[in-house]
């Protein structure tokens, strides 16, 4: 049925995003995983708002998700570049200054 189709797609995107976040050791790949997770939740909002309440509230939530994802991507990538400048590598393993 239609709603199940959209929910399975956003579930797959969500799990792929979490796999990317936990597995990749490249910081920018992790941020791509975060973008996938945000997109999956946006799709969920719009699908539920159409099929279970035929209202537009879900679409407004999806809009605000996109706005927050843009602001978050700008700041996160600035952090990654600043991290790259100080330790000249974008690998997660090298970020262990707090450990010792």
């Amino acid at each position: 049925m239609e709603l199940h189709f959209y929910l399975t797609i956003s579930a797959c995107l969500f799990t792929l995003g979490t796999i990317a976040i936990f597995w990749r050791n490249n910081l920018i790949a992790i941020l791509m995983g975060v973008e996938l997770v945000l997109n999956a939740s946006g799709l969920n909002f719009v699908a539920f708002s159409k099929y279970t309440s035929a209202s537009l509230h879900g679409q407004i939530f999806a809009l605000f998700i996109i706005v927050i994802a843009a602001a978050e991507a700008a700041v996160a990538l600035a952090l990654v570049l600043r991290f790259y400048q100080s330790s000249s590598s974008v690998d997660v393993e090298t970020a262990n200054k707090l450990r010792h």
Partner: peptide, 14 residues
């Protein structure tokens, strides 16, 4: 999902 404004904003921003 008949959310064309969200689709336009999605392509524009993402």
């Amino acid at each position: 999902l008949s959310a064309e404004f969200v689709a336009g904003v999605q392509v524009l921003i993402y």
